[in-house]
């Protein structure tokens, strides 16, 4: 039987040292059994590697930065939709999700499907609100506090012990071992990502992540836990292995059923020396290592698209344990005309 062909736009094509999930998501979509795809890349900068990976992305369009606002984004998406007739959009950056969530109904009316968290879910899980989130859903989170000025750092020693983690609103985190470092990281990260800065008590232990998909009704459609094996200086997993930890799966089911999470997500956990899991962060989208989930039998990008277009999706219940992903960098040779095209016309 001939498979349905879907036109799917995907962002997060920055397959760099702190990679976006786009390329990995697309690999999953291209391996989907239930549909064929034409992939439209949505890029912000001319040097996002995914733009030039023509066996991954069929055509790329640049889109405006999130700070340009939802209306500007909509105008650009209308232009792209006129040409490409998009069926689904998968935004992969935390910072752009707000605009896409705001435009969800408008896009739906245009015939473009998304499968995103609700505004409430998005806000509630925000790292600024994580302590309240932990309390509400009875999930252990390290003590944290949002601060708006370097002056507040001096009073932190009443509540925190060093080391502490200085975190940006959307991205970036550094471990500070003294006040001077805390101040320096505050300035560096706030200059890039704005305020507030979140200060989180550092938990000594081993890092684990779990990616999954919620159907918005409280059901977990997919869940794959991974232990980070190789971590870059930016804290990104460059190698990882799927594991068989029932407690992590139970935690995920609890998270999805209690929040009725809609869409892809990643839970970042630290297993402390007390053998307990602490929730460090909830990312409201698929992670850059999502292809590991595809590789062990749970094609989360495919399931997410099927949920977005209203197809029935049977939850995944199993995956291969002890499978690893090892990431690598690859130099592509690109003609300057391609760079010229995307830089001047905003399309390639």
């Amino acid at each position: 039987m001939k498979k349905r062909k879907l036109c799917i736009a995907v962002s997060g094509l920055n397959a760099i040292d702190s990679p976006g999930p786009g390329v990995a998501v697309i690999r999953g979509l291209r391996e989907a059994e239930s549909f064929d795809v034409r992939i439209i890349g949505l890029s912000y900068e001319s040097l996002e590697p995914g733009i030039y990976m023509h066996d991954v992305v069929d055509k790329t369009y640049q889109i405006p930065y999130p700070n340009a606002g939802a209306e500007t984004l909509l105008a650009r998406l209308e232009y792209i939709h006129d040409i490409e007739k998009l069926d689904v959009i998968i935004p992969n950056f935390d910072a752009e999700l707000y605009s896409f969530m705001k435009l969800e109904d408008t896009l739906k009316a245009m015939g473009i499907n998304t499968f995103l968290p609700t505004m409430m879910q998005f806000e509630e899980r925000h790292k600024v609100n994580l302590p309240e989130f932990g309390k509400k859903y009875d999930i252990k989170v390290p003590f944290s506090k949002s601060i708006f000025s370097t002056g507040e750092i001096y009073s932190l020693s009443n509540d925190f012990e060093f080391p502490m983690v200085i975190k940006g609103k959307y991205y970036d985190a550094s471990i500070a071992y003294n006040l001077e470092q805390a101040k320096s990281y505050f300035n560096k990260i706030s200059a890039k990502w704005g305020l507030p800065i979140v200060v989180q008590q550092f938990v000594h232990g081993t890092e684990y992540n779990i990616t999954g998909l919620g159907d918005g009704k409280g059901n977990t459609i997919a869940a794959v836990p991974m232990r980070k094996q190789y971590i870059t200086d930016k804290g990104k997993a460059w190698g990882g292995i799927t594991i068989d930890d029932k407690r992590m799966i139970d935690l995920t089911h609890k998270f999805v059923s209690q929040t009725k999470w809609r869409g892809g997500f990643e839970l970042e956990l630290m297993k402390g020396q007390d053998n307990e899991f602490y929730l460090l962060e909830i990312n409201p989208r698929m992670p850059a290592w999502i292809y590991l989930a595809v590789g062990v039998g749970q094609n989360i990008p495919e399931a997410m698209v099927n949920l977005a277009i209203g197809e029935e999706v049977i939850p995944y219940t199993d995956y291969e344990k002890g499978k690893m992903f090892i990431r690598y960098a690859w130099d592509m040779i690109v003609d300057i005309n391609e760079f010229h095209e995307i830089s001047t016309k905003g399309e390639l």
Partner: peptide, 8 residues
Amino acid sequence: VFNPVNGE
């Protein structure tokens, strides 16, 4: 030896 519970 591989411990699938914690990945060690």
